[in-house]
């Protein structure tokens, strides 16, 4: 009995002496922690539309967005570079999850503002959440002169609103996909037969090419019988380059406006006619 105790004791000692490198630590992988997914997209825009990403607390993301004229303009217009529409604006982080933003676009001289809240975060571990979800509500105001100045015009007629639920999942290190059910409300429409509310669903995809570059696709499908017959859906393909403090997004799109109501419901240009624009967004983050 005594002998066996001693043998057992020595076996235990030998075993302890030979065990692996981090034997002193309780480095238990199964300890209950929650791993939150980060960097689902490089920045808070997929191409034209918002991504689920928000800027961090007290950070200001200054954005300049340009869309040139049609490539089909050919060499005479230097493939569209002679014309440009643009939006200048920024996103600000009140908290890491709550953002507000303002912008001004030269399309219909539109001011836009939004409030954006990330309410679900994709995670694994103790807390398992398959997707990240963000709500965003935009308000826009076109300040261009009235097309019919002689009739009674109301300030409310200048307003339009867009509400979106953005749901995204980072499937792998490189691949992220987002779906964006969207409701656009226009206070003023061209005729009584046109709906004030337009339902659309956006789809976005990000595939990383390297640590600092990715290909992005974005399509906004508008449910049937809502758009005027001369309007079409917005399709964009982009290339993101991140250089530390800046993100450059270079893309081709048929959308013109850099705000939601504009590119979702007012896009006229068709890819198949070569009516595609080159554009870019430059994002620079400042810390306060």
């Amino acid at each position: 009995m005594l002998r066996s105790t001693l043998i057992l004791f020595s076996i235990f000692t030998v075993y302890a002496g030979n065990s692996q490198t981090l034997d002193l630590l309780d480095d238990d992988e199964s300890s209950p922690t929650t791993e939150y997914t980060f960097a689902t997209f490089k920045t808070n825009r997929v191409v034209n539309g918002h991504s689920i990403e928000t800027v961090a607390k007290n950070e200001f993301d200054f954005k300049i967005s340009h869309r040139f004229g049609f490539l089909s303009g050919g060499p005479y217009d230097l493939f569209g570079l002679d014309q440009a529409t643009m939006r200048i604006g920024g996103d600000y982080g009140i908290t890491d999850n709550l953002n507000v933003g303002l912008g001004r676009s030269n399309v219909d001289k539109t001011y836009d503002g939004f409030i954006k809240y990330k309410f679900l975060k994709q995670s694994t571990g103790e807390k398992n959440m398959p997707v990240t979800a963000t709500w965003i509500s935009h308000v826009g105001m076109a300040t261009i002169k009235w097309t019919q100045p002689n009739r009674e015009n109301y300030i409310s007629s200048r307003m339009h609103y867009t509400h979106q639920l953005l749901v995204a999942r980072k499937f792998t290190e490189g691949l992220s996909i987002q779906l964006s059910p969207t409701l656009v409300h226009k206070n003023l429409v061209d005729s009584l037969s046109r709906p004030n509310d337009i339902l659309a669903i956006g789809a976005g995809l990000r595939q990383k090419l390297s640590h600092r570059t990715s290909i992005n696709l974005e399509y906004y499908y508008v449910l049937p019988n809502q758009l005027e017959t001369d309007k079409t859906k917005s399709l964009s393909i982009g290339f993101d380059i991140e250089t530390g403090g800046h993100v450059f997004q270079l893309f081709f799109t048929n959308g013109q406006a850099a705000f939601e109501k504009g590119f979702i419901t007012d896009t006229k240009a068709k890819w198949l006619d070569g009516d595609v624009r080159f554009g870019f967004n430059i994002a620079r983050v400042f810390n306060f």
Partner: peptide
């Protein structure tokens, strides 16, 4: 012995932390 999770490094700027994890340390891998 020491063991440190890369994700637990805290930076004064959130964007730096993201780039540290995503681009430099590849902390998912």
């Amino acid at each position: 012995q020491f063991s440190a999770l890369i994700k637990d490094f805290e930076f004064p700027k959130a964007l730096m932390q993201e780039h540290f994890n995503e681009n430099y340390m590849e902390s998912t891998t």
